[in-house]
Design a protein around this nucleic acid. Structure first.
Length: 464
RNA sequence: GUCCCCAUCGUCUAGAGGCCUAGGACACCUCCCUUUCACGGAGGCGACCGGGGUUCGAAUCCCCGUGGGGACGCCA
């Protein structure tokens, strides 16, 4: 059978890291089986859904490269379909009107909680053979409830968690249409997964409890029940649950914070899934390897350190021109315009080995394009009066040398020998003069890329 | 409270009864490299939640605890 998976976010906020992983797994599963991946926006909560959130989700998916074969579908545009099916269920008796007010239900819930019972609807408007229903109150618009089976068990073999069984006694008659007529989540999911012929529902752990109700509805509709795979949640770096006010960052924030999508993808792939000892692999490999039986059923804690490490890897691996584009953009953001010289690709070839973050990388190389603000303590420590004559001598020699790292290195060696100094005695003050700080790659290479003009003028600034 | 789920190094994980004196990766520590800081290389530290079974043999299967999490909406 043709594999069809879907990602079905509700547009009430940005695409966060947990949602991104769910999307990634669904997408990869479809790719792995040469199937289709469908994007469906679950926007039936009119009060909380926003077009901005829809856009944020689309942006996040695009940034990660999670393309969809069908959609995006919007549930609000499918109202006619839902209404039609609700009417059908009303007609065939698998659903019924309920006139309970919210207040009534709240009171019922509270009472049940106090008695130590699981709060649920007590079925007072549920039609039953020989049962006399209350008279519908005047002017109260009813909700529609699904008539859930009273006995028996609902069971499914979860592709991640194994067999799960739930007794129907635990379930109540859930509302499938609100008093204003709009259908609710559990119902829309059922209709859509059915109509869109979804074969594997891959979603968050928090939906396990919805699954038996959905299966019951699917059965009532005579629909095929898809397979389910419930992914456990992702915890924050501190082991705490991710929430709106606690660390649930948008995937786009990773872009802002200097991460490459390849790194985020690779990191997410390994969070809760594994392929033996493999740690670093491309998204293509992931699509070849991905399977549901190697998903961990337990929750996973996010680890920024490891993401950083992967980010470093992908910064080293990516094509230099692509990296240059990426870094130029970030330089601009901190107010640095890249010029033709020094050559950005050359700069990055020298610097990317040591970087694990694009923003940090941009910050580190900014001095090639603007005079750096010198670190005062480094200046005092390294640019001493004793060394200044040596630097004057070096400068004179630099003015005549053929401009390459090798030649520059050679004259530095000469100077050092002539003045009977250790190499760092010369290298350190140069570093501070040219870069503003005491850490840089090999200073001769820095000088070579920086160019004669900038090198001499920055040295002069300290000698006059 | 009720139901459901989960449990291997600090973290992500390998592990489908013997291959496990439990492997890898991040982090951490030491050393090497060295022109500073990184990168890199070589080592090191470090875990099967507890108790009962089953079995010749259990990290792996079963039960009971314990701990953690999720769900119980006219939210999704």
């Amino acid at each position: 059978m043709q594999v069809r998976t879907r990602f079905a976010p509700s547009p009430t906020g940005f695409l966060h890291i947990g949602g991104a992983r769910t999307a990634l797994f669904s997408w990869a599963y479809a790719k792995r089986h040469h199937g289709q991946f469908i994007l469906r926006i679950e926007d039936t909560d009119v009060a909380r859904s926003t077009p901005e959130a829809v856009q944020a989700i689309l942006d996040g998916m695009q940034w990660l490269g999670l393309t969809y074969d069908e959609g995006p579908f919007y549930q609000m545009q499918r109202m006619d379909k839902y209404r039609e099916i609700i009417q059908k269920m009303l007609n065939d008796g698998s659903a019924y009107y309920c006139y309970c007010s919210k207040e009534e239900l709240d009171a019922l819930r509270e009472q049940q909680m106090q008695q130590g019972l699981k709060p649920r609807y007590d079925g007072r408007w549920r039609p039953e053979e020989g049962k006399v229903l209350p008279t519908p109150p005047q002017g109260v618009p009813p909700v529609v409830r699904f008539k859930n089976p009273l006995t028996g068990v609902v069971a499914w073999d979860d592709l991640v968690k194994g067999r799960i069984e739930i007794a129907n006694e635990e379930l109540d008659d859930l509302i499938i249409a609100r008093a204003d007529g709009t259908p609710t989540y559990n119902f829309c999911v059922v209709v859509d997964d059915w109509e869109m012929r979804i074969t594997q529902v891959i979603r968050g752990d928090d939906h396990v409890n919805n699954t038996p109700r959905q299966i019951n509805m699917l059965k009532a509709l005579g629909a095929t029940v898809p397979q389910y795979a419930h992914l456990s949640m992702i915890l924050g770096d501190d082991g705490q649950k991710l929430s709106k006010r606690h660390g649930a960052v948008s995937v786009m924030q990773y872009d802002e914070e200097g991460y490459l999508p390849a790194a985020v993808l690779n990191y997410l792939a390994r969070l809760g899934w594994s392929h033996g000892d493999d740690e670093v692999f491309s998204v293509q490999k992931f699509c070849e390897w991905f399977d549901l039986n190697h998903i961990t059923p337990s929750a996973a804690q996010f680890n920024t350190e490891k993401l950083n490490w992967l980010n470093a890897h992908y910064i080293k691996e990516m094509p230099l021109d692509a990296l240059a584009k990426e870094v130029a953009r970030r330089l601009l953001r901190i107010g640095v315009a890249v010029q033709d010289q020094p050559d950005l690709s050359a700069v990055l070839a020298l610097y990317r080995e040591r970087a694990n973050n694009l923003n940090q990388l941009a910050k580190e190389i900014a001095y090639f394009y603007q005079t750096p603000a010198a670190n005062q303590s480094d200046v005092e420590k390294h640019i001493t009066d004793e060394i200044k004559p040596v630097l004057v001598a070096l400068k004179t020699r630099l003015e005549q040398v053929e401009w390459s790292a090798e030649h520059i290195h050679a004259i530095m060696n000469q100077i050092v020998t002539e003045h009977q100094l250790k190499f760092p005695k010369l290298a350190m003050p140069l570093r501070v003069m040219l870069t503003g700080i005491a850490q840089s790659p090999s200073i001769d290479q820095v000088i070579a890329i920086l160019g004669k003009e900038l090198t001499i003028s920055r040295i002069n600034a300290y000698l006059n």
